[in-house]
Design a protein around this nucleic acid. Structure first.
Lengths: 226, 226
DNA sequence: TGTACATCAGTGAACGCGCGTTCACTGATGTAC
DNA sequence: TGTACATCAGTGAACGCGCGTTCACTGATGTAC
């Protein structure tokens, strides 16, 4: 690997970025912070520890972040971007709305279980308001949730589930349930869990009431196949 | 209040316990630790901070705990005791199994939301194995969960819900769902949540499939009342 | 074509703080003789 | 009834550590003249 062309260097071999490339350090800091959080056991993510890991003086962090909390916020923002990408990819090409919803939820849980420490930080961190992009309603993860609401609505619109008076509330239920599935599994790894996909499928079908007779009464009184 | 008879003293006015009453400090430490965790914003629960709050030298903590993690473990054990008590009380005197299950779940969530920081510690803390009472299967909160399994089974046995191939798995689903409801509400307080009881009721009824026709076919094809 | 200067990307020493942990110590209170 | 002693319940000073933050500094690189 050549040196000085922006190639990845391991910590301590680092040299200053080229003029105009100062933002690369910002990237390095965020990426390294994520890696440190993912580490097991998780390191507490201190400013000094982060700088050390990146191979840079502690003070250099201040060139890009006013605060270690702002690093954390950048990490969380990026992590939610990745989560949204993962669920979106899982939905791509799945035409059946119910199947798509299942696929989305499985991807969500897979992401959480695949990045357990990161997932915890995403929801645990008390982030400074100033550090979060968007207005007051734009809490991190809101975009991901909006996608879920849309997926739920498509199921309802397609008549695959009985009508519901509030798709937003229904989506909240599904989200909190998958959230709980992920977090419980993370914090109780020795519990005799049923396979994740079994739980997700059962949870989603029951909350959506897939397979329940639909009041429009075209075909009532039968346990649907699905 | 008289002094020297074991009455509660505020920090810094503390004086040594009577001979034979050394265990009282242990109690004080646990209770104070819980109070400190409940504080908003939560204090990180350091050994020195705890000792300061109790009004005792830092070294005195070592008289009862080998480690600050063992204090945390004692806190978690106690907290799960309180949670179990709360759900048990909620179930007392409620004869209808379905209603009792709802009542239990509401109490569970009320406890979580009422002690948000403590609830997080109960499930977040990476506790030293040595600090936890009971065998390997006796993770904290297991008793509480066993009660839930029993409550679910009673509903099934009473025929209030369609038969299920694995009540344990069904209880896992309900537990993780209520767990998620609590944690999501704690970490996203500005989200436009529906009322807690609405969500719990909907979640429990759907997961249990209360109101779905029961295969035993005594009365099928009707949307039950409930 | 040379050179002075501004800018960029980062450094390094120093500070005060709270932390966990160690060690030897203290002062009150029971109890054996 | 007195007294020496053991025990109990805790203390206080000291240590080294990693932390966040400050401050003045550096060395390479582009650019205006």
């Amino acid at each position: 690997m050549s040196v000085g062309d922006g190639g990845v260097l391991t910590a301590r071999q680092r040299r200053p970025n080229r003029r105009g490339q100062g933002e690369r350090l910002r990237e390095d800091l965020i990426e390294t912070a994520i890696r440190m959080i993912e580490t097991d056991p998780p390191q507490p993510l201190s400013l000094r520890g982060l700088a050390r890991q990146v191979g840079v003086a502690a003070t250099s962090v201040y060139l890009h972040f006013p605060d270690v909390d702002h690093v954390r916020a950048a990490v969380v923002t990026r992590a939610f971007g990745q989560l949204t990408d993962a669920t979106t990819r899982a939905a791509e090409g799945v035409l059946d709305p119910a199947e798509q919803l299942h696929s989305r939820c499985r991807a969500y849980c897979r992401f959480g279980l695949g990045h357990p420490n990161l997932y915890r930080v995403m929801f645990h961190a008390d982030l400074p308001d100033s550090a979060l992009a968007g207005g007051p309603a734009a809490t991190p993860g809101r975009r991901s949730f909006d996608n879920l609401v849309a997926a739920v609505s498509r199921c309802l619109d397609a008549g695959q589930a009985p009508p519901h008076d509030d798709p937003f509330r229904l989506a909240s239920l599904i989200w909190t349930a998958e959230h709980g599935l992920v977090l419980a599994r993370i914090s109780r790894p020795t519990f005799p869990w049923a396979p994740m996909d079994t739980l997700i499928n059962e949870m989603v079908s029951h909350l959506m009431a897939f397979g329940e007779p639909r009041p429009p009464a075209r075909r009532r009184g039968r346990l649907a196949a699905l």
